[in-house]
Design a protein around this nucleic acid. Structure first.
Lengths: 114, 114
DNA sequence: CTTAAGTGATACCATTTGGTATCTCAAGGT
DNA sequence: ACCTTGAGATACCAAATGGTATCACTTAAG
């Protein structure tokens, strides 16, 4: 499996889908509820949800005659880790934060301005 | 602010382009050199490079009659930060690491774990 | 059972996308 | 000058994409 994260990046490639993720970050929603937040048909939203589900970014659970879509942020990890490879190119990463903490350790003046 | 990071995610949405980024992570290359690593024509690679450049992920500098494409990993930051919003959903983030460091700072008993 | 509400599944459409082939332009080597 | 080499620009094509409209299925409510 050369690229298991392709479905993830593919899902993230559309702004509507990214918005849906943020939306589901607030609370799980049915298809109709999600569609209520966009200027497009329920069918179109459904398609996006399929792509998101395809990337594992959401989980769908039936509730009566409804389908509740929930965010699965954990699926973002592979993409995040892929990006992490490039950390080596911008030193000003959290390395800065780490350095700051280390500084407090070595330069132990006992002060901070939290 | 209609999604300034759309070009970035769009660029990342294609596996070939992600491969090109990794490739340019090794060293800057001309179009022909990049194309040499893929089973497609130079023109096709050029298109990908345009998309990457569109997302600010690479920079192009002329060198004689050649064009040298260099990685600009910094452009990944917006996407990375966007993803960071979802950190709140998987507590086992780098918060663990951060906590570990903080522990060493506050609990400076001079011991460490294995 | 009948009716309405929430989905799923197709069929269809316009646009975008990834790719090739081809032609022209610019820069070097001889 | 000549000819080669690297790159840009189109034109063109097949397939994927985002979207709608429509119909069938399933569940809840009378």
């Amino acid at each position: 499996m050369p690229d298991a994260l392709q479905p993830v990046f593919r899902a993230l490639g559309d702004p509507t889908r990214r918005d849906i993720l943020r939306l589901l970050g607030q609370e799980p929603m049915t298809i109709a509820e999600v569609a209520d937040n966009f200027a497009m048909t329920r069918a179109a939203v459904k398609k996006h949800l399929v792509v998101l589900s395809d990337g594992g970014l959401i989980t769908v659970a039936p509730r009566g005659r409804e389908k509740v879509n929930s965010l699965n942020a954990l699926a973002l990890k592979p993409a995040l880790e892929w990006m992490g490879w490039f950390d080596q190119f911008w030193d000003e990463r959290l390395d800065a934060l780490k350095t700051a903490i280390e500084k407090e350790t070595t330069d132990d003046t006992g002060h901070n301005n939290g």
